[in-house]
C-alpha cells in the first residue's frame, strides 16, 4: 500500500521530516494547522466492499486554499464530498472516522445535514445550474434557508453574490434569462455565486475548471484567490499548475491514501515522498 514509505531506499533518499506534529499518521508532512476550521481524523470511505479512502487525517485552515491533487481514481473527490456529507446521497457509500467542524462532529446523529451544507458550500466539476433563471439560481439558497427578510434584501444578496463571483457585469441586464443559456465558464461562476449567496464558511470545489477553456479557467482561479479572504476553500484539481497557482497548502493523494501534506511552495519545490515527487515531475498520473 505504502511501500515507498517503508522501503529503506526511499527513506534514505527522502528523510522523514523531524517536525511532524502527529507522528502516528503515515502521512508525510504536517497534517495539522493552527486554529483549524475542520479537523478530519482517520477517515475511511467504503463503496460497498471497496475501501476508497484509507485512514486519512487532515485539517482545513481558515482563509486559506487547500489543494488536493493526485492521479485520477485516487479518491480525492470522494474525500472532498465527505466534508459536506454529499456521500449520503450515494446509497452504498459509508464513511467512518471523525470530521469536526469547529469541534462539532458533522457525522453526529444530531447534526442536521441541511444546516451543515449551509455552512459548507460546494462547487461541482461540471457546472450544474438549475433549469431556472439566473436570478432564481442565486436566490434559491437564501430562499430555502430564509436568509432574506424581503425582496429588497434578496435582490441585494443576489447582486452582491454575482458581483463577488465576477459575473454581475455580464448578466445584470438579463437576470431573467435561464441559467443554462450562459457559457460554460459563466455557468461555473454562476454556481459559485449560488454557493456564496448562502454565506458559507467553507467552499468545497471539485475540479471546478475541468470542463472549462483556459480563459474561463483563469477567471475562476482569480476568483478563488479573492474568495480566500472570506472563506476556507478546499479544491480538488487534476492540474498541478492550478494547485500551485491558487493554493497555500497542498495534499497529495494516491490510491486512497493521503501521502503528503505541506505548504504548496514546499511540496512543489521539495517533495519529501517518492510518490509525490514522481507525480509532480510527471512520471505518472
Amino acid at each position: 500500500m505504502n511501500a515507498a514509505t517503508d522501503s529503506p531506499a526511499a527513506k534514505a533518499a527522502h528523510p522523514v521530516p523531524e517536525a511532524s506534529a502527529t507522528p502516528e499518521t503515515k502521512t508525510v508532512g504536517r497534517i495539522t494547522v493552527d486554529d483549524p476550521l475542520i479537523c478530519a481524523r482517520n477517515v475511511d470511505v467504503f463503496y460497498g466492499e471497496k475501501r476508497a479512502i484509507k485512514d486519512v487525517s487532515i485539517d482545513i485552515a481558515r482563509n486559506q486554499v487547500l489543494a488536493m491533487i493526485g492521479p485520477s481514481g485516487c479518491g480525492k473527490s470522494t474525500f472532498l464530498r465527505c466534508f459536506n456529507r454529499m456521500n449520503d446521497t450515494i446509497e452504498q457509500a459509508r464513511v467512518a472516522g471523525s470530521i469536526k467542524l469547529e469541534g462539532q462532529d458533522i457525522y453526529d446523529r444530531r447534526q442536521d445535514v441541511v444546516q451543515l451544507r449551509a455552512r459548507i458550500g460546494m462547487v461541482f466539476q461540471k457546472p450544474n445550474p438549475f433549469p431556472k433563471s439566473i436570478y432564481e439560481n442565486v436566490a434559491y439558497g437564501p430562499r430555502i434557508h430564509g436568509l432574506a427578510a424581503d425582496r429588497i434584501e434578496l435582490d441585494e444578496i443576489v447582486q452582491t453574490s454575482l458581483k463577488r463571483a465576477g459575473l454581475w457585469d455580464e448578466v445584470k441586464d438579463r437576470l431573467g434569462a435561464p441559467g443554462t443559456s450562459l457559457s460554460g465558464g459563466q455557468q461555473q461562476r454562476l454556481c459559485i455565486a449560488r454557493t456564496i449567496a448562502v454565506n458559507p464558511e467553507v467552499i468545497l470545489m471539485d475540479e471546478p475548471c475541468s470542463a472549462l477553456d483556459p480563459i474561463a479557467t483563469a477567471r475562476i482561479e482569480d476568483l478563488i484567490d479573492e474568495l480566500r479572504a472570506s472563506y476556507a476553500i478546499a479544491i480538488v484539481t487534476h492540474s498541478m499548475q492550478q494547485a500551485a497557482r491558487v493554493s497555500q497548502r497542498t495534499a497529495y493523494f494516491h490510491l486512497g491514501d493521503l501521502i503528503e501534506v505541506g505548504e504548496t511552495d514546499r511540496i512543489f519545490t521539495n517533495p519529501r515522498h517518492k510518490l509525490t515527487e514522481d507525480y509532480i515531475t510527471g512520471r505518472f498520473g
Partner: peptide, 27 residues
C-alpha cells in the same frame, strides 16, 4: 433528471423535499 442537478441543490443545503419539489420536479 441528472444527478448533478440534485447535487447542486443538496450542496446548497436544500432538504430532500426542497430538492425534489424545486429542482427535480421542475426539471
Amino acid at each position: 433528471v441528472p444527478q448533478s442537478l440534485r447535487d447542486g441543490a443538496y450542496a446548497l443545503g436544500a432538504t430532500r423535499s426542497e430538492t425534489i419539489r424545486q429542482v427535480v420536479l421542475r426539471a
